[in-house]
Design a protein around this nucleic acid. Structure first.
Lengths: 149, 149
DNA sequence: ATAAATTGAATTGTGAACAATATATCTTGT
DNA sequence: ACAAGATATATTGTTCACAATTCAATTTAT
């Protein structure tokens, strides 16, 4: 990026690049599980709590059905999840892990340590600092975009 | 995101969300200029220095020709740039701003201040701290992904 | 000088992200 | 009960990200 005098543009650009680098770093280890990074995030959410609605997953990942529906269909094709309409409310689609989907959690356990070996050398408070400030930025921008939804 | 005990996954997820929120925040103001966020970044690079090769732009934005070629063709269709093969080396494609492309810089000037009003209330050192740490993470992950390229 | 390797961009194919719209189901107000 | 509104997901269409491959132009090594 050029040497912008503008911290705002600069910061946005940095997040744009950082996000893609993180996703790329996960690519190789995730490939062994047959997952993309967004699919991995969905699986993390489901491993945390099985049987969630599409909208619940969407809320946690800040994604809408336009993104999630096709992604979830791919996870279904891969036999990792089932998609079933709720009986009590036919509008809702409940996502449940299949047995292979549950079993994959064990294989995914050591994904994080396969990555970011460089992060391991960071000072503890640098990491928590970055984490805290990033979450703060997320909070601010979530409000900025409040016209959405 | 679930309350992961894992800072690594957590941080990656935060960057994933933050990046999309930033891009969404830019969407509305950029729409008036007829630009998407990635297109805006390309224009910033060109406003900084006109007449760059595709690969130079790619290096600055960390994007390859698979992403840039179609994006640049759209900017060409919008009459913001010209794409011409270099005479000295026919493999190279030189990107030059058209007059409307140059003129757009003036309109884009106050894009940043239209956004992130919330960022303005941050402590100065919080912003620079976040910026510094994000750049450090980028550096680390760039090396992690060094098998690429 | 020419075959082999390299380089720069384009192409192909897959998966995301998201606006806008559609569709079906459920809820509310009267 | 039923029309009007709200809700949950799906669909359509555009743009991006990126791996893998292709193709032409240039560089190099012999």
């Amino acid at each position: 990026m050029p040497n912008l005098p503008n911290l705002q543009n600069d910061l946005g650009f940095d997040f744009y690049v950082a996000s893609r680098l993180v996703s790329q770093a996960y690519r190789e280890p995730l490939q062994e599980l047959g997952l993309t990074y967004p699919q991995y995030l969905v699986m993390l959410v489901l491993w945390e709590e099985d049987g969630q609605m599409v909208s619940q997953i969407g809320e946690k990942l800040q994604l809408d059905s336009g993104t999630l529906t096709p992604l979830l269909k791919r996870l279904e094709s891969a036999n990792l999840i089932h998609r079933n309409r709720s009986e009590s409310d036919e509008r809702k689609v409940v996502i449940e892990l299949t047995y292979p989907g549950k079993a994959l959690q064990a294989k995914a356990k050591d994904i994080p340590e396969k990555i970011g070996t460089s992060l391991n050398s960071w000072e503890e408070n640098e990491l928590t600092n970055l984490s805290t400030l990033t979450k703060k930025l997320i909070k601010d921008f979530t409000q900025t975009n409040s016209w959405k939804k």
